[in-house]
Design a binder for these strands. Sequence first.
DNA 1: GATAAATCGCGAATAATTTCTCTATTGGAG
DNA 2: CTCCAATAGAGAAATTATTCGCGATTTATC
Lengths: 253, 253
Amino acid sequence: MSAKREKILESKARKSQEELMGAVTLENITSDPRSQTVPTPSLRRLPLYLRLLRDYQAQGRTVVSCTQLASDLRFDPTQVRKDLALTKVGGRPKVGYPIAELIAAIEDFLGWRRTIEAVLVGVGSLGTALLGYNFSLYGLSIVGAFDSAPDKVGQVVHGREIMPIGYLTNFIRQRGIPMGILTVPASAAQSVAEMMVAGGVKAIWNFTSAALQLPDHVLVERADFSASLAVLTRALAHGARSLAPTIPKKEVT
Amino acid sequence: MSAKREKILESKARKSQEELMGAVTLENITSDPRSQTVPTPSLRRLPLYLRLLRDYQAQGRTVVSCTQLASDLRFDPTQVRKDLALTKVGGRPKVGYPIAELIAAIEDFLGWRRTIEAVLVGVGSLGTALLGYNFSLYGLSIVGAFDSAPDKVGQVVHGREIMPIGYLTNFIRQRGIPMGILTVPASAAQSVAEMMVAGGVKAIWNFTSAALQLPDHVLVERADFSASLAVLTRALAHGARSLAPTIPKKEVT
DNA sequence: GATAAATCGCGAATAATTTCTCTATTGGAG
DNA sequence: CTCCAATAGAGAAATTATTCGCGATTTATC
Ligand SMILES: NC(=O)c1ccc[n+]([C@@H]2O[C@H](COP(=O)([O-])OP(=O)(O)OC[C@H]3O[C@@H](n4cnc5c(N)ncnc54)[C@H](O)[C@@H]3O)[C@@H](O)[C@H]2O)c1
Ligand SMILES: NC(=O)c1ccc[n+]([C@@H]2O[C@H](COP(=O)([O-])OP(=O)(O)OC[C@H]3O[C@@H](n4cnc5c(N)ncnc54)[C@H](O)[C@@H]3O)[C@@H](O)[C@H]2O)c1
């Protein structure tokens, strides 16, 4: 049976990857006993709740039920309850959850109370947009911007002077920056990512379509436009026939 | 037992939402017999394979194995095989899959062979970046840009003249545009989305953080920065202690 | 041609996630 | 004070997604 060895081979390949995969992106980095394996889908939904909760709070409300949140997000109420349970904030029957507490708990859970510093590399269209965006509500602060184009270096974009790419690694190292944001062309992504890693970043937020090859201890998160686009286009192209008529039927609002 | 009625209530809430949820975003729109319920995670991974396949092709290769793809993406080889099976393109043992065929099949599967027209509303930082991006490889073409700011209207951005928001609904209706891209401030998102729906779009690509309330027949897909950020920040904030040292240990490359 | 190595493909097993069911609280109305 | 409706919470069940195990196929090599 030559099949025996084959299994071993593919299995080995799987094993070595295991530490980076799926929900695991989080778990293997997590040794903090508080953080039980958090379901990644739940983790990704938490910012949505947070956003809504802030709205409610701005409207002067102090409590909110799962039912309300679920209805606004078109989620299942039970799912909302499960997700919120992660924060350990308890709700009261017939009333709901205390909004202020929940906001604080979610922010804490996500690490958005304490600001994380990041550098951004590639001040093109997208990089410029991100530089202009205020991430303070998301616990993020972009403290340095880098580019390789000579005409960009020295320019001030949204209050930050663009530095030459050659300074990147040292800047990260000296300041102990934990995160790099990648908005260079895909072709430059790997080499820039390696510079970031050389400087010591622990995580990379990758807006390019490149599949980065980096050491396992670096967490790479794709901010992938194409994934969500795929869901849309697939539905439009293959399901359009059954979509509702152009003039929408009246719905409950 | 008053509980009885309660169950009925929450169940009803769930039922009415069922048609919009999770993987279902796709399925309930899909009546095409070809398209069996496609696992959403797989669907979202397909663009990644496509991207790599195009690279391989540019390098002159004609076939590629799951093992190779899996290794480049740090996925499980079996998962890659399952995902590619969606395309019905068969691979040959010991050789792999024909790259050209696979590319065509994935493009077709995603609906990226035939261009879908879209309008973009909100030509700010992000909107401008998107307008400048070439989505032709993604089967998308932004054919109109709108904004409400008087000083923006009439400007030409990336070859497109910005139109006043008042023209939006008619533009969509007259041209039969199926998709709207939302890059306005969150506070304006709901009202702009309603204009899009009034014009007859079938899908909305929502870059804002707003939770849109729209009729069920409109497919809304979030292009959510905060979700992926949540994964990163949570890991950095709560798992940093166990992350590798600043100076990365040597790894296989 | 026989043999070995790589890989596909399929069905089974496992794991993760979502949804359901039931019970217990809570606040308000009569 | 009692009843009712709304809701949280916890565990079970169902669903969905991933991973495994195995046999079959193909190519290269001896
Ligand atoms: N613009 C969008 O809307 C959009 C959408 C989806 C994905 N993306 C992705 O984001 C990335 C950036 O897109 P963009 O439209 O901003 O591109 P861009 O060309 O406008 O900007 C790229 C920037 O990176 C700089 N750069 C190039 N090589 C570099 C290097 N080696 N080191 C440092 N800087 C370097 C360039 O000088 C330029 O300023 C791309 O990978 C793109 O695929 C962009
Ligand atoms: N800039 C980013 O990097 C970034 C990142 C994540 C999310 N977003 C989201 O994308 C959206 C846009 O962000 P931005 O940074 O481009 O904002 P922006 O303020 O730069 O642009 C918003 C644009 O929308 C226009 N607008 C406002 N109200 C409008 C209306 N009713 N009708 C038509 N146009 C209207 C404004 O005139 C402006 O041009 C926001 O919801 C933001 O949360 C942006």
